[in-house]
Design a protein around this nucleic acid. Structure first.
Lengths: 347, 347
DNA sequence: ACCTATAAATGGAACGTTCCAATAAATCAA
DNA sequence: TTGATTTATTGGAACGTTCCATTTATAGGT
């Protein structure tokens, strides 16, 4: 079953008794071809098992119908949700997104971007890996390839960004915690080499300040943005004298970790310690207790990013506006009142 | 910032004062070129912002360094885990996997496969969408393109399959349930148009028969392979007279749904009703209660699939052995003994 | 000095498409 | 009939690579 040399447009031209140009026209659905001729050609294509060679075509035509989507953590359901949103809009535009994972590895990211470019993609939607160097996207910008960032922004870059309003989300969540009577608050997870981290932490800090929580009643512990990271954060927090009674977590994964660690210590999340997450992944509503979280509308963000990309491609420009997506706090069961405060009131 | 016509190998040849052939050789890392010349060329490449055109190259060379991975549900963490396994082995082989999602839609799958082929991938790893028609992969086989299925097999197809031992996994899980004293068992979720479904259900049935559970004490309810599907399954099961006391679920997502529905009815998973999942995704161990599940080693399966693919590519063959991966039941907290049986014993 | 062997670099054809300009065939107006 | 117009079809050049066959430069042996 050795594969014979694969069929080309000329083979099918011969088979159908027409010229290669005619075949090409049929392939492009041109209406310059007589319907019966087109039919003959299509039959030949079918018989021969021809597969179109887009590489060859792109040699002449400007651009392909594929865009690359580069994400930093395929394992985070957040990105899957976003990808689904994108796919919805790309599909109706006849373009196919290819997804590549970088696993937070800048070197891998470099390779993946290179491959995608060589493949001749029409554009790139990227959620940059942690530790991406500022110059990593210079090549792409030089090539004039449309690119947009999602979720994460790079320190000094003019590449358009589609992201949620991190500052506001954190503010909202923090205010909610304070409203529940908590006076000693923590911010758990994330690391300071991410711009998002500063945005979220900034929202947390400002809310504390605005609502009368002194900075010394505030605890910030960095950590991996995963369940494991969350567990670690809680451990270090509990080890302190006069520990916090509530935490805003960098994302839902961290929050899940915190809840886990709480249980392991015999504490009940939501009653003994309040926790709020960020992103509102689908799991959030299914957890026990259901997690209060900042919903960022990941699918919507994905759609938005896809639209921006489409516009860039069509208008052959490389500039676009940033888009900061609305967020809202969805309150569930993971944040009861501060028990000590509550008891104080009752006494 | 309009993109000037992009640089080609000739531009950089001129820039470096050599011939295009020399540049080509440098690009391929040939040792026929004097190191200093190579350096000159590499500098020109950098200066000019050249990007390699793999489409053009593939016109002459046989095959590319990308393989396509087509999956039916990006949203299922199981696939993300598998993808990560694959990436590990592909990366060290210098090949880049592009992932495309079909969302269980055979039409979408068709488009995606077409795109991938046109792009000139070296091979395809596919987890077919539900309802894939038998002929869907004929084109690919005709083209002699290496292809392997993961997780799912098609009714009558000679394409190699990498999948876990579904039959054995289901048998093990069912035996465990029976060992806990349960006598009225259910199989929840999945639909009969999937071969996997029959494999898992078959294991369930055989275990029941072998261990003395009559067929009429057995309940099978089909359903979506998602949390939602799980919820629905439990509802219909509880609506029956003399309902089951334990269930083997088609996969973990279904199991999570069942546990959710249990709680909603005021029943405690693991004590009032036993549930076991399938796949053992990472969430399983973090749930409350932690879910007993059949571990299939998704990352390992991914690695395996990648190795098989690599071998196929290297030996330019299109045939390979199936691989049935070992499974094992990891027992956690979601399956207590049958309470009625327990009480009966005590009385 | 010469010829030979080796090392380094090069020109040209080929790969599978698109698209322009050109041709061939069919239709119409006179 | 003839020329003009429209409708279908076609050849050829170009796209950016690779690779074979050559050429040119360098070194070695006598």
């Amino acid at each position: 079953m050795a594969s014979r040399p694969k069929a080309t447009i000329l083979d099918i031209a011969r088979e159908a008794g027409v010229s290669k140009s005619t075949v090409s026209l049929v392939l492009q659905g041109s209406d310059l071809i007589r319907p019966e001729t087109a039919l003959k050609v299509r039959k030949a294509i079918e018989d021969v098992g021809y597969v179109y060679n887009r590489g060859a075509a792109n040699l002449r035509k400007a651009h392909s119908n594929v865009i690359g989507m580069v994400i930093n953590d395929l394992t985070n359901p957040f990105f899957a949700e976003m990808a689904v949103g994108m796919e919805r809009v790309f599909q109706s535009a006849g373009i196919v997104p290819f997804i590549a994972n970088t696993a937070e590895n800048p070197v891998r990211q470099e390779e993946v971007l290179k491959s995608l470019m060589e493949q001749g993609v029409a554009g790139l939607i990227v959620s940059p890996a942690r530790g991406t160097t500022p110059g990593a996207f210079r090549r792409i910008e030089m090539a004039g390839l449309p690119i947009v960032f999602t979720m994460r922004r790079l320190p000094e870059s003019r590449i358009p960004v589609i992201a949620p309003d991190n500052h506001r989300g954190a503010w909202l969540a923090t205010a909610h915690l304070i409203g529940k009577g908590h006076r000693r608050l923590a911010f758990f997870g994330g690391s300071s080499d991410l711009v998002v981290y500063h945005e979220r932490l900034g929202g947390f800090r400002e809310a504390c300040e605005a609502l009368g929580i002194a900075k010394r009643d505030t605890l910030v512990v960095e950590g991996e943005t995963s369940r494991k990271g969350g567990i670690a954060c809680l451990e270090t927090a509990r080890a302190m004298a006069d520990p916090p009674t509530a935490a805003l977590c960098f994302n839902d994964a961290v929050a899940f970790g915190v809840m886990l660690a709480l249980r392991k210590r015999g504490l009940e999340p939501g009653v003994d310690f309040a926790v709020v997450g960020f992103d509102d992944v689908v799991e959030a509503q299914h957890y026990m207790p259901a997690l209060t979280s900042v919903a960022v509308d990941s699918a919507g963000l994905g759609e938005r990013a896809a639209h921006v990309m489409l516009k860039m491609i069509q208008s052959r420009t490389t500039r676009a506006e940033d888009h900061i997506g609305a967020v809202n706090l969805v309150v569930r069961d993971s944040c009861g009142p501060d028990r000590r405060a509550g008891m104080g009131d009752a006494a």
